[in-house]
Every structure is written in structure tokens, then in C-alpha cells.
């Protein structure tokens, strides 16, 4: 301890007074306390995930015998067997299904949110105040109250067991959180360039595409990343709408594999859980700046 307190003292050009020393020691103690506490909590937070990765390489016999994460005889049999699944399809199929849900949904979200946010942030029109209030209200409206009639609606138009119920509401700016986030972002951008473009004769749509969209990029990237992650994790939506196994996304397939393989093959389920988390983790670590910014400007669920 003494050695550590000496470091700042040594840097000081003049001999510090007793009060200064006391202050420094106090600040240092606070630093150590903070780092210690944060590291401990961080470890508790992250250890389950680290353990998960280690356990996915363990044998079933070792899984419940030691709390360490390093497997004593590493094996990839969990991945090989788990990938095959108990269905006629492999997990590859389920990953493609997830991707096929995510990509159109994300593109639809980004385009519709851009148009709608542009409308709200840059134009005056009859009923604007009321419509904006409905954005806020929808933000707070629990989905649970609209879910059943939505299901009945999709059933009546023959969309059950297809991806349309998952795509279409989002493509019509149905995720109020994203609409709100982009509106807030756009409101903070100065209008000078847009006005200049309009004076030069650009239409509003040209202004949107060539001036506004490039400036909106950071917000749109946040929207796409969140939508990717939430859709990847979404369970209830596919659970209600997708019934044939060939169309299952990863979340449903994982639930299916718990129900069908539980009794003996733990490492298969854990191995597939690691794979299911991998895309979200990869995206998060590649682009965490956008997550932190998105969450801080718009506020977020989760």
C-alpha cells in the first residue's frame, strides 16, 4: 500500500503538505474501492457467459462436477451432435431462417423510420400533434393487449406460419421506439443544408435521400443493430406465428432442442446456445459505440 501512495508523491515537484497527503490517500482509497467493487460485480456479471463457453466444450460427465470453466478433456462433440438436431434439419437451416426474418425486417424498419421521422421532424401537417402523441402512447402501450387481435387478423388474411406477421408491422414503422429515436435525432440536426438544397430546386424526396439520410446514418445504424439483436432474440413472435419446424428461427429451435434432448445431452444444448448468442455478441462488440449512443439518446427497453 505504501508503495502505491508514494507514486503520486514522487511526481510532485514540491514536498506535499500533510493535508494534501491525506487527501491523496483518501482519493486513492476511493479509487481502489471503486475498482475492486466494479471488478467483482463485473466478474459476477460475465462469469455465467464465460462458463457457458467453457461448458459447451465439456463432456456431459464433467458438466456438473466442477464450477471451473476450463474443460479437462475438451471436446467438440456437443457442437457436432447439437448441430444435427433431432429434427430433419440442421441448425444451419435455423440460422438461415433467422437471417431471413431479420434482414427484410431490419431494412423495412430503417426505411419506414426514416420516412416517418422526416415527416414528423420537418413538416407541418394537419393532425401532426395528435399523431406524434400516438407515437409516445404506442411506446408505452403493452403489446400484450394488441397481440390476440393481431393474431386473428393475420390468421384471417392467411399469413400464419409465414414470416409476414414478423416483417410487415415493422416495415410500417410499427416499432415506436425506433421512430421516436430517429425523430429525436433528426430534430437535433440543423436544417441549413436541406434548405439550401430546396432553394436549389431539389424535391423533398431528393433532399431526404441526398442530404438527410447521410446525416441520419449514425441513428439508422443504431436502429438496424438493435433491430437485428432484438429479432435474433425474439421468441414470442415466432412462437405464436411460426408452426412448421422447417421455418423455425434459432430461438424456437433452441427451445425445441431443450424439450427433446434434455435428459442426456446437456453439452449439445449449451453448444447451440453459444452459437445462438454468437451473432449478437459479434455485432455488439463490432459496433458497441452505436449501442451506447442509441441507448443514451433515445432511452431503450431491455
Amino acid at each position: 500500500m505504501a508503495a502505491i501512495t508514494d507514486i503520486p508523491v514522487a511526481k510532485s515537484p514540491e514536498p506535499p503538505t500533510a493535508i494534501e497527503l491525506k487527501h491523496r490517500r483518501k482519493a486513492l482509497r476511493s479509487q481502489i474501492l471503486r475498482y475492486g467493487l466494479l471488478s467483482l460485480v463485473g466478474l459476477i456479471m460475465i462469469y455465467p457467459l464465460i462458463w457457458l463457453i467453457g461448458a459447451s466444450f465439456k463432456t456431459n460427465a464433467e458438466m456438473f462436477s466442477s464450477p471451473g470453466f476450463w474443460p479437462s478433456e475438451p471436446t467438440i462433440s456437443g457442437y457436432i451432435e447439437g448441430w444435427k438436431t433431432s429434427t430433419p434439419y440442421t441448425f444451419g437451416r435455423f440460422f438461415l431462417n433467422s437471417l431471413w426474418i431479420i434482414i427484410p425486417k431490419t431494412i423495412g424498419t430503417a426505411i419506414s423510420c426514416t420516412l416517418v421521422a422526416y415527416g414528423f421532424a420537418r413538416f407541418e401537417f394537419p393532425g401532426k400533434k395528435f399523431l406524434f402523441m400516438t407515437v409516445i402512447a404506442t411506446l408505452l402501450l403493452p403489446n400484450v393487449v394488441t397481440r390476440i387481435p393481431q393474431y386473428l387478423l393475420f390468421r384471417d388474411i392467411g399469413w400464419l406460419d409465414s414470416f409476414l406477421p414478423l416483417w410487415v408491422p415493422s416495415a410500417l414503422a410499427g416499432d415506436a421506439f425506433f421512430v421516436f429515436m430517429v425523430i429525436q435525432f433528426l430534430r437535433a440536426i440543423p436544417r441549413d443544408m436541406e434548405e439550401a438544397a430546396r432553394v436549389d430546386g431539389a424535391t423533398t424526396l431528393q433532399t431526404l435521400i441526398y442530404i438527410v439520410v447521410p446525416m441520419l446514418m449514425p441513428a439508422l445504424i443504431s436502429v438496424c443493430l438493435f433491430q437485428f439483436m432484438w429479432t435474433m432474440n425474439d421468441f414470442l413472435g415466432p412462437l405464436i406465428y411460426i408452426s412448421s419446424v422447417e421455418k423455425y428461427p434459432v430461438s424456437l429451435a433452441l427451445k425445441l432442442s431443450i424439450d427433446t434432448t434434455e435428459a442426456f445431452a446437456w453439452n449439445q444444448i449449451l453448444a447451440m446456445s453459444v452459437l445462438a448468442l454468437a451473432p449478437s455478441l459479434a455485432v455488439f462488440f463490432m459496433a458497441q459505440k452505436y449501442f451506447i449512443e442509441g441507448i443514451s439518446t433515445g432511452g431503450v427497453k431491455g
Binding site: 420537418r122 394537419p126 399523431l131 387481435p149 410499427g174
Partner: peptide
């Protein structure tokens, strides 16, 4: 911005309005 039409903004928010009616307002009442 441009005073061309007060309906222009409504055109841009129309996807939201359609979604709101179909997937929120109607199911809510239903």
C-alpha cells in the same frame, strides 16, 4: 420548409398511420 403542400408531411408519415390503424388501433379496440 417549402410551402408547397400541407399534405406533404402526411405523405411521409403515411406508413406509420397505416401501421397504427391496422396493427395498433384496430387490435386495441378489438
Amino acid at each position: 420548409m417549402g410551402g408547397e403542400s400541407k399534405w406533404m408531411g402526411l405523405w411521409y408519415v403515411s406508413p406509420y398511420v397505416i401501421g397504427l390503424l391496422l396493427f395498433t388501433a384496430f387490435p386495441f379496440l378489438a
